[in-house]
Design a protein around this nucleic acid. Structure first.
Lengths: 198, 198
DNA sequence: GCTTATAATATGACCGGTCGTATTAATGCG
DNA sequence: CGCATTAATACGACCGGTCATATTATAAGC
């Protein structure tokens, strides 16, 4: 595989810092300069990597969801675990991470949907694409679980995946203001261990 | 009842404009000047009504939830309707309003939880209080419905109210980026007409 | 391979503007 | 006229983005 250039390293550093800071302070609450300071990149250089802050935001969104998709896919690919258990384990791991992080941040997708979902068309589309990618993977996991007989068959897996994602998003918002992982745990218990069961 | 003073009128106008603009553009995406222009109030006067932008934000949050609580309470007080039907009708009305508004804005509580839930302690507490008020009212409605035998009794009404609010919040975020009320409708269908049923 | 010219890339000072808040001035009322 | 209230103005900081310039990379000729 081709060697990663210095430019690509810097670009990725910007994206990583962008994820961290937009999660903590939101899109408009975070100035470019703060991100550039953290990534040690001068202002003028930023525009070699990204056309604008808005374009940068759209790419931060994709950069954010990538590891979640990788992690969920890895769970689903484990052949010795049934799909529903894989999904439960995946969310279990997320909850452990959120507790470690003292309930801060939540989900960047949810945060930005709320903040700039109406005001940035570029970011709205990036969010829609990211949520779609994530939801499609969850849906394929639920479909597998249906085949394995561990999930109810009278509801479409699209609808169940949507419900799961929406409830999870709402639970993470509650988590932030109540500083507790109880909402996230209840989401998993009520849907994955109750409502979705045959 | 005492006559409403001019000062109170101006204060309420600021809060109304604040709700509208924070919904559309978020907290940090909306400057005070924009709100003051819309309310026709000079910059210096703002500080007669509110100690800071942050305090203003916290009061906008309470001002935002008040009519929802009033509307839901009115539904629940109608003696000729059972509680579950009242809740369904309430959410049905919200969906109609959201469709009329072309799926913009969503829920200010959800938006601000995501954007400033970690960065403003004053607003976090206001959000927590507002969500608590709303949830408690929903919980009392679900408790009534349990008494009437229209809602399952093997789950606490606190937990069901939490699940309903969290899923609704997540559904409204999806609504914004997909410009569709389907997520909100699915939330009601799956929870109020399925999962919560005895 | 070295030197020079050219092209590409990187950069930080600067721009015009707005920010939230503090200070000062003006106005209204008893 | 004095005090309270309201409003105008000022302030220091920061915003996203631009651009003239500096630096680095590449190409061409010998």
């Amino acid at each position: 595989m081709p060697k990663v250039t210095k430019k690509e390293l810097k670009r990725e550093s910007l994206l990583n810092q962008g994820v961290t800071m937009l999660m903590g302070q939101g899109y408009h609450g975070t100035g470019l300069q703060e991100i550039l300071n953290a990534a040690n990149i001068p202002k003028g250089s930023f525009y070699n990597y990204f056309g604008s802050k808005e374009n940068f935001g759209a790419e931060v969104i994709q950069h954010y969801i990538d590891p979640f998709i990788t992690q969920l896919a890895a769970h689903l690919q484990q052949s010795e675990t049934d799909a529903l258990s894989a999904i439960r384990r995946y969310f279990g791991e997320l909850i452990v991470e959120l507790e470690k992080n003292e309930f801060k941040g939540g989900c960047l997708l949810g945060n930005l949907m709320g903040e700039i979902g109406d005001s940035s068309e570029i970011c709205r589309k990036s969010l829609q694409f990211a949520v779609g990618r994530y939801r499609d993977l969850l849906q394929s996991g639920l479909a597998k679980a249906q085949q394995q007989g561990t999930v109810r068959s009278d509801k479409t897996t699209e609808e169940m995946a949507d419900l799961l994602i929406n409830t999870w998003q709402g639970a993470l918002l509650r988590m932030k203001i109540e500083k507790s992982s109880v909402p996230a745990k209840q989401c998993c218990k009520n849907l994955l261990e109750d409502f979705f069961k045959p």
